[in-house]
């Protein structure tokens, strides 16, 4: 019964959202904006639920005295610190919360982001091995774009940045567009399967 209700709710909401895109009346606009409001509220509440769940999960790990107890303790301390500091002194530009964000969280995140440079290099080391004609074309395109789009491209040849731009704007974009069209059709079919109840993750 509850599954049937869930499917009916999905069907009605899905069809309404599709219809309201084309039909503009005061009533459809009012329902639509109310749905958007609820959507934001549900998301905000889900973040609170998620946060509490995270705390609960790590508290259990600490109690179980698992090997990963240390990581869980750090997570709990960090969450509680940020919440308490924000409640006590707000989140203004000069608050301790903002200080912690700018001086702890931002550098830690930037550090993880910077791993990308190292992983790009190690992936390129393995991935651009020329073992066949298509692999040669791939490696050649990579070299042209890498050099052409770098600051040295213009120094080597005035034409190199233009050639790199051509590779990006023509063969690369054409291939991407082909994938995007397929993705678009696939998205519609997947959404329809969910709306029609043909395929659903709930049972």
């Amino acid at each position: 019964m509850t599954n049937r209700l869930a499917w009916i709710a999905t069907l009605v909401t899905g069809l309404f959202m599709m219809a309201q895109y084309f039909i503009k009346t005061e009533a459809t606009n009012a329902i639509y904006t109310t749905l958007l409001d609820y959507y934001q509220i549900i998301f905000a509440v889900s973040m609170i639920v998620g946060g509490i769940g995270l705390l609960k999960q790590h508290s259990l790990k600490v109690q179980r005295s698992s090997q990963q107890r240390g990581y869980s303790l750090i997570t709990i301390t960090a969450i509680l610190f940020m919440v308490i500091v924000a409640v006590i002194s707000g989140t203004g530009a000069t608050s301790p919360y903002q200080w912690a964000f700018n001086n702890l969280q931002a550098p830690m995140q930037a550090t993880t982001f910077s791993l990308l440079a190292f992983f790009v290099a190690s992936a390129a080391y393995r991935g651009f091995r020329v073992k066949s004609a298509p692999a040669f074309v791939l490696a050649l395109a990579a070299i042209i774009v890498l050099v052409g789009k770098s600051g040295f491209g213009e120094m080597i040849s005035q034409q190199l940045p233009a050639i790199a731009g051509w590779v990006l704007n023509n063969p690369s974009t054409a291939a991407k567009r082909g994938i995007l069209i397929g993705v678009g059709i696939g998205s519609v079919a997947t959404a329809l399967r969910v709306i029609l109840g043909i395929e659903r993750s709930y049972r």
Partner: peptide, 14 residues
């Protein structure tokens, strides 16, 4: 310079 270094890495890999 990093981009050129990656280019050198690709050549070294080959």
């Amino acid at each position: 310079v990093s981009q050129i270094a990656i280019l050198a890495i690709i050549l070294a890999g080959n």
